[in-house]
Simulated assay, not measured.
Amino acid sequence: MTLRLEVLTQGPALERLLEPLADLRIAVFRDWPYLYDGSREYEAWYLAKFAAADGAVLVAAFDGDALVGGSTGLPMSAEHSAFSAPFEERGYATERLFYGAETILLPAYRGRGLYRRFFQRREAHARSLGRFEHLTFCGVVRPDDHPLRPADAVPLDPVWQRFGYTRMAGVTTTFAWKDIDQDHKTDKPMQFWIKPLASELGDG
């Protein structure tokens, strides 16, 4: 199995990967904790804003020609308002924030250090643009007693902390999607994490 990473920015090469990226999001986010019952229609709406953003990046992992993982990011000022509003309300200059939209990888390729490399390449891209002070992202918050929580579920909080990110107490948003056990969209709470871009990825 030969894996390679490519860093793709705005343009035809990135646009050609939007459909494979949509399929990857639908597949990976169907699992815990997102439980996302995805559709191409929703993906087209969600990814259109990402692809149009000046400064957007996709760190793509390929096995041969197949997209098996990816990490995306874009300027916060170009994101959906659900993500930028909590920062604007707290006086952050959103034009100085880079937003890490997602980092996803098919299960068969996990445990090989790709997750760390995704973060490293995404942060390097944000630094290279020279106008961002922090990188932030958010993750869904599920109740401990959720009926679809796997018995072996492990939170990623310790990993993000090792990578140098800090949980932003009280800085949250909501975003709506349809869960696999529901018949309509519902708002989900999302917790933000942040890191100064002057910092390198932790070694832990």
Results as ranks from 00 to 15, higher is better:
residue 81 S to R: 15
residue 154 V to N: 05
residue 93 A to E: 15
residue 86 P to Y: 04
residue 180 I to T: 14
residue 79 E to A: 12
residue 114 L to D: 03
residue 130 G to D: 07
residue 152 D to H: 14
residue 103 T to F: 08
residue 159 V to Y: 00
residue 126 A to W: 00
residue 172 T to G: 05
residue 135 L to F: 08
residue 153 A to M: 04
residue 172 T to H: 11
residue 182 Q to I: 05
residue 117 R to I: 06
residue 154 V to R: 12
residue 117 R to C: 03
residue 154 V to H: 12
residue 149 R to M: 05
residue 140 V to S: 07
residue 69 G to M: 06
residue 168 M to S: 09
residue 99 Y to N: 02
residue 169 A to V: 15
residue 119 F to P: 01
residue 79 E to Q: 11
residue 97 L to V: 11
residue 112 R to G: 11
residue 147 P to M: 04
residue 64 G to P: 02
residue 93 A to W: 05
residue 98 F to M: 02
residue 111 G to D: 07
residue 165 Y to C: 03
residue 98 F to R: 01
residue 121 R to N: 13
residue 77 S to E: 15
residue 67 L to K: 06
residue 106 L to K: 11
residue 179 D to A: 13
residue 157 D to I: 14
residue 126 A to P: 01
residue 171 V to A: 06
residue 167 R to K: 13
residue 120 Q to E: 15
residue 91 G to I: 03
residue 84 S to G: 13
residue 76 M to D: 00
residue 161 Q to S: 05
residue 174 T to W: 05
residue 100 G to C: 11
residue 82 A to I: 07
residue 72 T to H: 03
residue 61 A to F: 04
residue 162 R to E: 01
residue 151 A to M: 09
residue 118 F to G: 03
residue 144 D to T: 13
residue 118 F to S: 02
residue 90 R to D: 06
residue 167 R to Q: 13
residue 146 H to C: 01
residue 96 R to V: 05
residue 160 W to P: 02
residue 139 G to Q: 11
residue 169 A to S: 15
residue 81 S to H: 14
residue 117 R to K: 10
residue 92 Y to T: 08
residue 91 G to D: 09
residue 174 T to Y: 04
residue 115 Y to S: 09
residue 141 V to A: 09
residue 99 Y to T: 01
residue 166 T to K: 09
residue 166 T to F: 07
residue 134 H to A: 14
residue 87 F to G: 00
residue 135 L to D: 12
residue 108 A to E: 15
residue 117 R to F: 07
residue 107 P to S: 02
residue 127 R to K: 12
residue 75 P to T: 06
residue 138 C to S: 05
residue 150 P to D: 12
residue 173 T to E: 04
residue 144 D to N: 14
